[in-house]
Design a protein around this nucleic acid. Structure first.
Lengths: 221, 221
DNA sequence: ATTACTAGTAGACGAGTAA
DNA sequence: TTTACTCGTCTACTAGTAA
């Protein structure tokens, strides 16, 4: 097991080209890059050599360093860890739920021009006047929560007819290839297990579904 | 500057999902993963919290940990290093955005000789005094983040007229064949969806664009 | 210039333990 | 069970310096 300080040193040499061939380095310059003393850099190199992560030819005016197969292996392992951390960006989320009846509010809001225009501009389609409400499976509720980390599109509220229409946010997604959006009203705390969807068409018609039918929503950030 | 031991700890939490949301961890289990004592793991968490790389809610039976923006940035920086080490395939990135008005600061900075000379030397052109600001499409914001893994050209700050002008970095790119550069001020936390561009000519004139017009930026490392 | 030894020491470590 | 404190040990650091 390589210690993190040594690994950091090995990475620095790799950045200088130590994987492709010998690089000329002084313990002084390496110390600068690692923000440690020259002595510590020197000791790190000795340690890495002893563990056979690199090989050196030490000269009176510097040294030529090459990273060995073993060293490359150690670096690749670390690289793989970071890939796993950030590969989640391309991860796909699937939500499973069943159709329920809403209160008809969706239809009202989706007919208001200021909202419609924002959706058209920001999401890429004019929403059909009406929303599809889904009750999520228990297993999907956790997934739903993770969606909050993604890049939702903000929808601004407005004033009209003497009242205030609040902010909202929308997350683009797909159902059976149809572009949709999960819409969440701004402040009101929505139940965890209910989502409301907009689409350019009537989803009930396009999918041929009615109350209690199962639906899968795909979110691919 | 985050020390390597702390970074290793932060990475471990990221692997457990600390970037997506709170993860439940005990210092004991973390200690096992890091091959250190429970006390050391606990100390690492305190250090990371103090440096605002993560936030915690500590309970009598464990703790919920979330990695902050700052922590994610530190991890991405490390990831970027490894990407540079192992980058083999050259891929092209396309950013789509629309022209917005800046605050006129770009014009000021791009008229300062120490900056101008560095751009001329390192990027290959003298920047026109003024920058083009773009608001990125939602879909391009993710692409923008990935650009951080490429090899940006560092621009050093300087002192003049009794004040300090900060570091910056620049990534060469093209718009409609015109060589450009994306410029990001050193430390200041820039909005994710805004980029600032320099070019040897006035981009507004050369492209014939004005506010809200769409522009495509090509980055080919 | 270099590398890397010795010496002295700051600080990181794990053990024990309280809350 | 937890977290995280104190404490004693010893590692790992920097400074000085030889080759």
């Amino acid at each position: 097991m390589i210690v993190s300080g040594d690994l950091q040193c090995l990475k620095e040499i790799a950045l200088l080209g130590g994987l492709k061939g010998p690089v000329f380095v002084s313990s002084q310059s390496l110390a600068g890059a690692l923000q440690v003393s020259q002595q510590t850099a020197s000791r790190r190199l000795q340690a890495l050599e002893r563990q056979r992560f690199l090989s050196r030819s030490v000269n009176p005016d510097g040294q030529y360093i090459t990273i060995t197969k073993g060293g490359e292996e150690a670096l690749r392992q670390e690289y793989a860890s970071y890939c796993r951390v950030f590969a989640t960006d391309r991860q796909e989320f699937l939500l499973q739920g069943s159709v329920i009846s809403g209160l008809g509010e969706g239809r009202y809001y989706m007919s208001l021009r200021p909202y419609v225009e924002q959706f058209a501009e920001k999401i890429g389609f004019e929403p059909y006047p009406g929303t599809l409400n889904l009750r999520l499976e228990a297993a999907s509720v956790g997934v739903r929560k993770r969606l909050d980390q993604l890049a939702w599109v903000p929808i601004r509220g407005f004033m009209a007819e003497g009242r205030t229409f609040g902010d909202a946010r929308c997350l683009p997604c797909r159902i059976a290839g149809i572009p949709c959006g999960i819409v969440v009203p701004g402040r009101s705390h929505y139940p965890d297990d209910i989502i409301e969807l907009i689409a350019p068409v009537s989803l009930r018609e396009a999918l041929g579904v009615t109350d209690n039918d199962g639906v899968t929503v795909e979110v691919a950030p």
